[in-house]
Nucleic acid binder design. Structure first.
Lengths: 209, 209
DNA sequence: GTCTATATGAAGATAGAC
DNA sequence: GTCTATCTTCATATAGAC
């Protein structure tokens, strides 16, 4: 039974609280209370609340970048794509506090803005790569202009679906089900697939409901 | 030259500031400074900052409800739909501060949460009514399950497109161009339209770029 | 590393004069 | 209706003891 370092406990608890009640509503006092440590102790490990946010963002960014390293020239299957989306939604859900009050959070930690924007770009690009792979495999038919529009739509949905979903269905549940998001994403792609693949993806999408 | 009442000036200026820098970053001092009135004067007209937010929400809700009163049995044309979307995006843009930090704002003024959710429901329903009208006119082919998914997607996009767009294209522009949002929405509907209507809608969508 | 106690400063809000 | 002055509250952050 290894003891978890206080520093890491602070990070974990902060993340939970941020996700639960929103980063702006979480005070350093609340965090230290939750951990049964003193506020002073918290400030021994992090010189400001912003530092906690930034370190959590570092984690998030690293996980995302790792995930977004999609090989340009691979033949991607529908199953692989679904799995990719699944992982992405899990990551977004784990750091959902960032997305719930995006403008506010990014406005107060403004160096994060550029980095977040870069992630967005990379996300759109990853979707582009996937769709182009589908096209190469003759699984998808789509005009260049529609493709751009679709990939932006996918990026938008990847960002906001979780917030939207938990807002429209007033669930007090803490955890977010990533399934419905994946389902929604698959249905965005579906109309552009060839008949056979369309049927196949419809089947896959059922598993995510 | 009629003089605008201070009360209304407060509302207008607050709305501008909220949209510009985000509601949480706007203090009562900033509002009164901007108006060249004293903080005390502001509190003569509104007993709290929350009251200003709520009154702005009242305005927003009224405009939205007015817009969402779509007749159930009318034959809606593609042009009418586009115009409808255009108006909706304008309204959302005018009160975009609500959408930019949704979770945060709704968490601090919690009676707004129910009302906002009701608006979301009504939006989804309005899209449903429109699509069903298209279907009755044999302009659209879509399965029941896809229809539900599409209408939620339209609602999501109507909510978040503006925030997403201004986030991804780092424009320091104050005003938001509602056009790209409409374009995106039209492209969501397009795949489900019959050939002729698809071409027609593609033409219409070009005007919004 | 952790604590208690305290400083700093900002935002929301009120009182009372004009 | 509008102002100035002031109060309260509370979150961030620091100092210094253990």
């Amino acid at each position: 039974m290894k003891k978890i370092k206080t520093r890491d406990r602070i990070l974990n608890t902060s993340l939970s609280l941020f996700n639960c009640v929103g980063e702006p509503n979480v005070t350093t006092l609340l965090i230290s209370d939750e951990l049964d440590i003193s506020p002073g102790n918290l400030y021994y490990h992090f010189k400001s609340k912003g530092d906690i946010v930034e370190e959590l963002f570092d984690q998030f960014e690293a996980e995302m970048l790792d995930l977004l390293a999609v090989p340009e020239d691979a033949d991607i299957s529908l199953d692989q794509q679904s799995f990719f989306l699944h992982l992405m939604f899990e990551t977004v859900a784990r750091y959902r506090f960032l997305y719930q009050d995006l403008v506010n959070v990014l406005s107060r930690y403004d160096q994060l803005q550029t980095r977040f924007r870069r992630l967005l770009k990379k996300k759109t690009n990853a979707f582009l790569v996937i769709c182009q792979s589908f096209r190469r495999q003759n699984m998808m038919t789509i005009e260049e202009e529609e493709l751009q529009s679709l990939c932006e739509q996918l990026t938008l949905t990847a960002c906001y679906w979780n917030s939207f979903d938990s807002l429209s269905h007033l669930n007090d549940r803490e955890s977010v089900d990533p399934g419905r998001g994946v389902y929604q994403m698959l249905h965005l792609v579906m109309p552009y697939l060839a008949g056979q693949q369309q049927a196949e993806l419809r089947l896959i999408s059922q598993d995510y409901l």
